[in-house]
Design a protein around this nucleic acid. Sequence first.
DNA 1: GCGACAG
DNA 2: ATCTTGTCGC
Length: 251
Amino acid sequence: MTIVGVPAGWPATEEEARAVQDELRGRVVLDEPGPPPGAGRVTGVDVAYDDDLDLVAAAAVVLDAATLDVIAEATAVGRVSFPYVPGLLAFREIPAVLAALDRLPGPPGLVVCDGYGLAHPRRFGLASHLGVLTDLPVIGVAKNPFTFTYDDPGPARGGSAPLMAGAEEVGRALRTRDGVKPVFVSVGHRVSLPGALAHTLALTPRFRLPETTRRADALCRRALREAVLSAAARRPAGGGQAPSTRQAPTS
DNA sequence: GCGACAG
DNA sequence: ATCTTGTCGC
C-alpha cells in the first residue's frame, strides 16, 4: 500500500502556515449559491490518525444526494503532515484528503467536511482551504462551537441561530434533529450559507451528523485500522512473527 | 500573562 | 482526534 508523503514545500511552522492562509484567503468565492440540495452528488471527507505510527487515513465517500446511497468511495493513507493546532487544522488534514479525492472514479459534487470554513480565526478554515485548492463547492459542518458563541436554536429540527465571532456572523448553529445538540455550519467555498444549511438538513434525515460525515468517518477508521495492521505485520515486534535477535548496538 | 480552542 | 465499560433504547 502506498503511503502518501508530506507535499514538498508544505508549511513546517505555525508562522508559515498562517502566512499561507493569509495568502490563499483572497481566493475564496462567496458569491455563488452552490448546487441545489437533494440533487446530484455529495461527498463526505474525513480523517483518522495514529500519532504513534505517524499515520493519517483519509476517506472520501460519494453519495447520491437524492437517495443518500453510496455511489463511490476512496481512501488514502499518509504521513501526518502537521501537528494539531487550533486554527491550523487544514494543514493536518488536507494532503490525505486531496489524495483520497483524487482516487475517486468520478466528480465529487458538493464536498462536506468536518470542521469549519469561514468560521475561523482568519476566516479560512478547512472547508475554505479545501475549496480553494480544488475549486469545488465545499461546506463545513462541525460538532463543536470552537471559539464562537451562539444562542440556543429552537428545539425542533431546522431551528438555527447565528454563530458569532464577536459581532460578526460566521455561520449558524443548526438543529438537525429534534431536541438534540446543534451542529455548526459554515460556508467553505462557492456555496451560500442558506445553501449550506439546506444541504446539511437534506443530509440529516435520521441522525445528528450528516450522512456524508458518518460514512466518511467509518471508512477512514477502517482504512487506518488496516494500515496499522499491515504496518505491524511488516515488523517482528507486534506482528506475531519471531522476535528479532539482533545484536545490541555497541557504543 | 493565562485559559480556551475545529479535528 | 483518541483512550475506554457499561448501559439505555429502538
